[in-house]
Amino acid sequence: MAVTDERVPSLISSHVDVIYRVYGAKKMGTVSGAPGNASLKRLLKGRGSIGGVREVHAVKDVSFVAYHGESIGIVGRNGSGKSTLLRALAGLIPPTNGEIYTAGTPALLGVNAVLMRELSGERNVMIGGQALGLTPKQVREKMDDIVSFAGVEDYIDLPMKAYSSGMAARLRFAISTAAVPDILMIDEALATGDAEFQARSRERVAEIREAAGTVFLVSHSDSTVRAMCDRALWLDKGRLVMDGPANEVCDAYQAARSKTSPKKAGAKKPAPKAPATKTPAGASAPAAEKSAATKPAPADKPASAENPSPAENPAPAEKPAPDAGTTSAEDAPR
């Protein structure tokens, strides 16, 4: 008897491809060095960007099914298509090929989520809450909870341009989770904030999961994915490499990353030098004579006539002592 899966799907991704075009991306040579300089060619060609069009295949044939109550992490290297896939699942980017089905309205929370810098934090809460489908009355009822969760009670009347990046990230998360969304998508937003805020964020994500919501989390932190997700997707160069339990996927991803990461070659240790022997000041001459005596003399090496070495030249013969009755020219009185 076949076992039926009683879980209810919340999102279906069927053979999704995302291809986008980049204009002005025609290759004109290397940036510097041979065979040419791209900047110089740009100047010679004329002003403006080079009129080339390049297609980037960011997501390639990705298929999976997400269910209500699941928390799914998406891992992969930079440029593997994680954020692009998340934006396509949220409906912000139309897929080039394939279909995406959602049971409910997805809410994307990212580090680049737009907050109006000129408006106050309170006005941004009102606008963001209504964008999630809440009425103005419901937003006012939740205002205190949102402000308290973000920890910006003393700054809620200031314009957003006066907020730090961490304060703005906390307020974005608090706004996005004010109304329990059917599908919450978090793109690196939990990486900004202290440990206390991250703990509160995990509690809020757990509440959303208990309310039968689905959570997608893109993060470069394996520990965050292991702690907050029960399932993980591993993307590499736009393709879905592995789909399974979070711990197993993270282990496989870590193993693959450790194999492909370049290893630094160990520096060669210099050959040990012979320790220099220190000669006492009083015994310098005898020690030098002793060391010179221990060195083997070169075998029958003729002395150079042009640059005779002092060591090779024989000592001058001693003059014979003068006889007792003989007076040398030097000793003669002048």
Rank of each mutant, 00 (worst) to 15 (best):
S284H: 13
I127M: 12
P308A: 15
M185R: 07
A256H: 02
V218W: 01
G128H: 05
R202T: 11
R47D: 10
K278A: 14
E153G: 10
R77E: 09
A332T: 14
S13L: 10
V62R: 01
L85S: 00
L171F: 04
I146P: 03
I72P: 00
V16K: 00
A103Y: 12
M160Y: 02
A283D: 13
G128M: 02
R239P: 03
K161F: 04
S83N: 05
E312W: 06
M28C: 09
L115M: 15
A297W: 14
G129K: 02
I72T: 05
E207H: 02
V152T: 04
P94H: 15
D144N: 14
L11Y: 01
D323A: 15
H15S: 15
A256F: 02
R54A: 01
W234S: 03
G129M: 05
Y20R: 07
A293Q: 11
G133M: 04
L44H: 09
N78H: 00
F216A: 01
K301L: 15
S83L: 08
E141H: 04
L190H: 03
P9N: 07
C229N: 04
N78L: 05
T84H: 07
L132F: 03
P95S: 01
K268W: 11
A199P: 01
Y20C: 10
M28R: 10
S10T: 10
R117H: 14
D323P: 15
F149G: 03
A90S: 09
R140Y: 06
T135I: 03
A38D: 11
A227I: 08
A317S: 15
G33C: 13
A303F: 12
N37D: 13
G48V: 03
D230V: 05
P245W: 06
V114G: 11
M116I: 15
S284Q: 14
V180P: 00
D61E: 11
G121P: 01
E188N: 08
K290V: 10
A299S: 14
S63N: 10
G91Y: 04
V215D: 07
S49G: 10
M116H: 15
V139H: 01
D17H: 13
A283R: 11
A162M: 13
A168D: 00
N124F: 08
P280T: 03
A332G: 08
V111S: 11
A206L: 13
A271D: 10
T30D: 08
G33E: 12
P106K: 02
Y163N: 05
P298M: 09
D144K: 13
A276M: 14
A252D: 14
A274I: 08
A293F: 13
S13F: 06
M116W: 14
P314R: 07
P322Q: 09
F64V: 03
A303I: 13
A131N: 08
V8S: 15
F173D: 00
M143C: 01
D157T: 02
P322S: 12
E312F: 03
K45H: 13
Y163I: 04
R257W: 11
T277Y: 12
K269N: 06
L108G: 01
T177L: 08
G128N: 00
A174I: 00
L86Y: 01
A199L: 07
R204F: 08
